[in-house]
Design a protein around this nucleic acid. Structure first.
Lengths: 184, 184
DNA sequence: TAGTTTTGTAAGTGATTACTCACTTTTAGT
DNA sequence: ACTAAAAGTGAGTAATCACTTACAAAACTA
């Protein structure tokens, strides 16, 4: 990976997240990266290839996070770590995950490059088990509920809320999942 | 509203929901509507004007639903009706709401045409009150949680789940909000 | 029915776009 | 140092796009 190739990737990520894939011309990417437009196509074949390369980074990054959650011993700790996941993703690589989430709604990337990754499925399994261990009556449904909740949380995070809001929301969510709670 | 004008709106809605705003050429809209391309601009000035006209319909439709929820007497009934809202929206006008939700992620329509409508704010107020009446300790936070949950549910509904899945999920969600539950 | 407005069309137009190509420069292996 | 491959450039190009314009048909109004 040459320096300029990496620069193209970073710039494209930034611009795609900011303006969207379709509304970001390759000419602009080249210009802001300080690179000839032709180089983009030398390295990534076409515009979609550029997007695919960006998407490929997603798997790796998500893998790190999922691994660290799976490694936790306590089932409750796993659930709490999962709740924190969206916030962590957005604080680390805001542009990247913004793009990632917006893609879910685009037909082109549904079912193709953006299919649920293996790590996502692993996380679901692990959390299902965590709910089971905690004595929840319907662990599969609880996971679905948690997934929906985190989707919604990501939605909130898109709007750049304050640190205080995030803190508050997070602890409220966690308070919903505690040892001494009803598990009907 | 002439027949052809309405035809343009319907066709544009369908295509925008299917392929996205930026990736749907006005030429295709005209072609599928069986209308000359120029007529689109006669009626809606430009492509964005067409989108705005579609968006304008959103307020009216949402208004109907919110009004019927607000009219309910029991606070718990209000909450359950709110839970059912996304499913109702998607079953009635799938394409329309798909477009609506995908717009949230597009910079162009965040904060502009797609700002939280008055009806949304009214619903939030009403549901906050419902939670308060039910004795929940932090009604404002409960509403936020419910909003996130329904965002996530809408996400699920995008993937065209089975009737059985919807039924199951809905009743599970409702079971989380019941009179005899903990209200910490 | 004459006149005016509205609705509709077909054929453009200039700008923009993703992508190519012929070419030069840099890098790396021997 | 020689050479071949890889990295990089910049000037195209064909296609597509949103939008315009000149004009005709239809619908309303008097």
């Amino acid at each position: 990976m040459t320096e300029k190739k990496e620069l193209i990737l970073e710039t494209a990520l930034k611009l795609f997240a900011e303006h969207g894939f379709d509304t970001t011309p390759t000419s602009q990417i080249a210009k802001e990266a300080g690179v000839s437009e032709g180089l983009i196509f030398r390295h990534f074949t076409n515009k979609e290839g550029l997007m695919d390369a960006i998407l490929a980074m997603s798997e790796e990054r998500m893998a790190r996070h999922v691994k660290s959650i799976v490694a936790l011993a306590e089932p409750l700790a796993k659930i709490h770590a999962t709740i924190e996941l969206p916030v962590k993703l957005f604080s680390e690589e805001r542009e990247f995950w913004k793009l990632q989430f917006s893609l879910k709604w685009q037909k082109k990337y549904r079912g193709q490059s953006y299919r649920p990754s293996g790590y996502y499925l692993e996380l679901v399994e692990v959390i299902t088990d965590a709910f089971r261990q905690l004595g929840y009556a319907e662990p599969e449904k609880e996971v679905l509920l948690l997934v929906m909740l985190l989707d919604g949380l990501s939605n909130q995070l898109m709007q750049q809320p304050s640190e205080a809001f995030i803190e508050q929301t997070l602890s409220f969510l966690k308070s919903k999942y505690q040892q001494n709670k009803l598990k009907s």
